[in-house]
Simulated assay, not measured.
Amino acid sequence: MSDGAFHGLALVLAIAGMAAFALSLDAHWRQIARRRPPSGLVRIGLRIGGGALQAGAFAACLAADPPTMAVLVWTTTLTIAAALVAAAVTVQARLSAD
C-alpha cells in the first residue's frame, strides 16, 4: 500500500474510534440513538473498541512514516477526527431539535 493509503486508513480508523468514544457518553448516545443510554458493559466495549481503533490508526501511521514522524501525523489525525466527530454530533443534535 502507498503512504497515502495508510494515511487514509489512519483517518478512517481515527474517526471510527472517536465516534466510539463519543457514543460511550450518555449525552451523545441520547443525541444519536434517541433512546436510553447503554449498559455499563456496552459503554466499556465502546471505550475499548475506540482505543483499539486509535491504536490501529497509530499502526497505520507507523506503516507509512518513520516513528518520530508517525507520532506527529497520528496526533494531527486524531485532532482532525475529533473535530469531524464533534461537528457531526453537533449537526445531528441541531437537525433533530428542529
Rank of each mutant, 00 (worst) to 15 (best):
F58L: 15
A33Y: 10
G56M: 12
C61D: 13
V89Y: 02
A16M: 10
F58C: 10
F6D: 02
G49E: 14
A83V: 11
P37K: 06
S24G: 10
T90N: 00
A97T: 08
S96I: 11
A10S: 09
V91W: 08
H7C: 05
G49A: 15
L62E: 11
C61H: 09
V12F: 00
A82L: 14
W29R: 03
Q54W: 14
A19V: 01
A55L: 14
A63S: 10
H28W: 04
P37Q: 04
D3F: 11
V89E: 07
G51W: 12
A88R: 02
Q92P: 00
A59L: 13
A52T: 11
P66S: 13
G51V: 12
D98I: 14
V12H: 00
Q31M: 12
A5D: 02
S96R: 11
R35M: 12
R94L: 15
R34W: 06
H28Q: 11
L41M: 12
V89D: 10
A59F: 06
A70P: 03
A14N: 05
A83H: 05
F58K: 02
M18G: 09
R35E: 12
A81K: 05
A87M: 12
F6K: 07
R34D: 05
L25F: 04
G49V: 13
A88W: 07
L9G: 03
P67T: 01
V12M: 00
A27I: 02
A97S: 15
A60K: 08
L84A: 15
A93I: 07
G8M: 06
L41E: 09
I80R: 00
A16W: 06
T77A: 10
T90V: 09
Q92S: 13
G56K: 06
D3E: 14
T79G: 15
R47F: 06
A86G: 05
A19S: 11
T77W: 10
A55D: 05
M18Q: 15
G49P: 08
T76D: 04
